[in-house]
Write a protein that binds this DNA or RNA. Structure first.
Lengths: 320, 320
DNA sequence: AATCAGCATTTGAACGATCAAATGCCATGG
DNA sequence: CCATGGCATTTGATCGTTCAAATGCTGATT
C-alpha cells in the first residue's frame, strides 16, 4: 500500500477502486490515523484557515451581534473543512500589521473584516496584496459599492426599520425615530427605512431625534418626544433601552418600542427588535469566499452579481 | 549566506555574530521575507496555536464575559507569539470530536476549555491523551482541586460577593441575596461570600431567594422580599436586572443593587457589579500553559503550587 | 610552524503530506 | 501472440523550515 493511494482515498476517493478504498479506510480507523495539517499546508500552500478580527471590547449592549457572527462563522466554516483563526488589533494600522503576518506567513487563506468605513486602509491593503477577503458591512463609499473586487455582506438596515415602522403604525399614526447623528452609513440607512414608511403614509410631523450610542444619552434624547408618540423605532437596542427608560419615567410603561439587533436586553425588557440574523451573514461570507459548495477558498471571480450579499433582517415582535 | 544562518538569526539571534545578524536583518526587511508558518510547524512539530471553544450563543446577558475572555486571551497570546484558533461544538461529545481533530492533526499545541463540571468527559479525555490544557472555571470535584494534572484558572466568586455585601451593609443591615438554585459550584461559591459576611455581622434574618438565570424569573423571585431589604446582592447581572425591575415596580428606584459580571446592562442601569477581570484570567491561563515568560507551551510540570490561579474580582461601585 | 580549542557558519537530512509522471495490470482487438 | 488503451497504483520530487553534525575560521598554545 503506498502513500499516494492513502492520499487519494482522503482527497479524491472517487478515483480509487472501492475495495482498495475500503481497505484503506479500515486501516485508517484501526490505527486512528489523522493527516498532519502542517505537512498538508506546506505542500498545498493552503492553510484552510480564515482569519477574523476580534474588535476591542467596547462595552456596548450590541457587541453581541459580532460575537454571534463569529460563532456562526466558526460553525459553518467547520462544516466546510475550514478553521477560524482570531486576531486582535486596536487600530487599522495595527490590524494591517497583524494581517501581514498572517497572510505572508501563510497562516490564513482569506480574512473577514468588519466595521469597514469609507477609505478604509485595510480594504486597500488587502486588495493591493490580492488577499481574498470579505467585509461584514458595506464600504459605504459610492465607488466601492459596485466593485466586484471588494466582496461584502451586510444587513439591509432600511428593510429592518421599514418592517418595524410598518408594524409600529398599528399602534397609532405618530411613530417617532431615535437614531444616531447623521453621517454614519449604517445609521443613515436605518433612518431611511423609517422615513420611507412615514412619508409614504403621508406623515410629516412624526418626530426624529438623535443620540450617541449610550443609554442615558438616548434617554435624554427621547424624553422631549416620548409623550407625543404612539410608538418609537430606534436604530439600536441601546437607544431603545434609553427610550424604554424615558417611557417608564413618564409612566408610559406600555409604549411600543422597536430596537435593532435583538440583544438579550430586548428580550429581557420585552420590546420588539430587528434581528440581524448573523447565521445568514456567516453563510453569505462563506459563499462569497468559497462558492456555494466548495471546500476551499476560490480565486476571486469578477462577476458583479455575486460580489455582495444583502441579508434581510427579521423583526422579532414582543408584547409587553 | 546559508539557510541555517537566517534560521539562527530568527530563532537564536544570540549565537550569530552581530554583524552577520545585522546583514541578515537588513536583507530580511528589504525583501520583506516572512517564514512560512506551515513549514516551521512541520519541522518543529509545534503549531504555536491554542484552541479555544466558543460556547453556543445562549442569549444571556452575561455571555459577554466569555467573549471578553477570548478577546483578552487573543491579545496576550499574540504578545507571546501564539495564535488562537476557535472551534464550535454543541455538546461535550462533539467537543471531544473537534478536539481530537485539532490535536491529532497537530493544529493546536494546547486547548482552553470553559464551563467545566464535575466528571466532565473533556477533562478526562484531555488528560488521558496528555494534551496540555487549562480550564476557565474550577472542576468543582473535590478530587480534582488539588490535582496538578488539571490546570485551572477561576474567579474567586465568594470574594466578589463578600466585597459587594460589605459595601451593601453601608445602606442598612438587611442585605438580601438573589442567587441560583443550590447545586452549581459557581452559584454556591457566590452565595457563600454573602453568607459569610452576613453571619459575621450577626445577622440571621436577611432573606435569600433563588431563580434561574432569566430576568423575569429573577424579578418574580425578588418581588416578595424587595420591600424589606436595604440592598440586594445578586449572583449575576441577569438576576440583578430582575431585582432592579422588582424594585422599580414597588417604587424603590434607588434600592442599591449589586450584580456580578459587570456587563453593559449594569453600566446602563447604573447598578454596582463585580467585575471578573477577564484580562487577569487570560494572563493566568497563559502563565499556566507557557510559564511566566516562555514563548511556547511547556510540558506540564507537577508542582501543585502552580497548577491553579484564583483571580480576585473587583467591585465596581455605581451610584444611582 | 603546527596543533588545537572555541566559536561561527554551512551542509545533509528530515518533518508528512501532495503533485506530476511513471509503472503495472487487465481486457480488448489486430 | 503481441500491441494498445484505459484505469489503478506506485515512484520520485518538492513544499520551507529546523535539527544535528560537519566544516571553516581565528587566535592562542605548544
Amino acid at each position: 500500500m503506498s502513500r499516494q493511494t492513502v492520499s487519494n482515498v482522503l482527497n479524491r476517493p472517487e478515483i480509487v477502486r472501492p475495495e482498495t478504498r475500503a481497505r484503506v479506510d479500515e486501516v485508517i480507523s484501526r490505527l486512528g490515523y489523522r493527516r498532519h495539517a502542517a505537512a498538508r499546508r506546506l505542500r498545498t500552500l493552503r492553510s484552510s484557515t480564515i482569519g477574523i478580527h476580534l474588535d476591542p471590547y467596547s462595552g456596548g449592549i450590541s457587541g453581541t451581534v459580532l460575537d454571534r457572527f463569529v460563532h456562526a462563522l466558526t460553525e459553518r466554516a467547520s462544516d466546510r473543512g475550514m478553521r477560524m483563526l482570531v486576531y486582535a488589533a486596536e487600530s487599522p494600522d495595527e490590524e494591517i500589521q497583524r494581517l501581514s503576518e498572517l497572510i505572508e506567513g501563510g497562516e490564513v487563506d482569506a480574512v473577514v473584516i468588519s466595521g469597514t468605513f469609507h477609505g478604509d486602509p485595510r480594504t486597500r491593503w488587502l486588495r493591493d496584496k490580492g488577499v481574498p477577503f470579505v467585509s461584514f458591512g458595506r464600504p459605504w463609499g459610492e465607488d466601492d459599492v459596485g466593485d466586484p473586487a471588494h466582496l461584502w455582506v451586510d444587513v439591509d438596515g432600511a428593510s429592518g426599520t421599514r418592517d418595524a415602522t410598518i408594524h409600529a403604525l398599528r399602534h397609532g399614526p405618530r411613530v417617532g425615530f431615535l437614531g444616531w447623528p447623521e453621517g454614519s452609513g449604517t445609521g443613515d440607512d436605518r433612518a431611511s427605512g423609517w422615513h420611507q414608511v412615514i412619508t409614504a403614509h403621508g406623515d410629516t410631523g412624526s418626530p426624529r431625534v438623535v443620540a450617541y450610542e449610550e443609554v442615558h444619552a438616548a434617554r435624554r434624547a427621547a424624553e422631549p418626544v416620548i409623550e407625543e408618540v404612539d410608538a418609537m423605532v430606534c436604530a439600536s437596542d441601546t437607544l431603545a433601552f434609553g427610550a424604554y427608560l424615558a417611557a417608564l419615567a413618564v409612566g408610559r410603561r406600555d409604549l411600543p418600542i422597536y430596537g435593532f439587533d435583538n440583544t438579550p436586553v430586548a428580550e429581557a425588557l420585552g420590546f420588539s427588535s430587528v434581528e440581524q440574523r448573523p447565521e445568514e451573514v456567516a453563510k453569505g461570507v462563506l459563499e462569497l469566499l468559497m462558492g456555494p459548495e466548495g471546500s476551499e477558498v476560490s480565486p476571486r471571480r469578477p462577476s458583479p452579481g455575486f460580489a455582495h450579499v444583502l441579508v434581510q433582517p427579521k423583526l422579532v415582535v414582543r408584547q409587553r
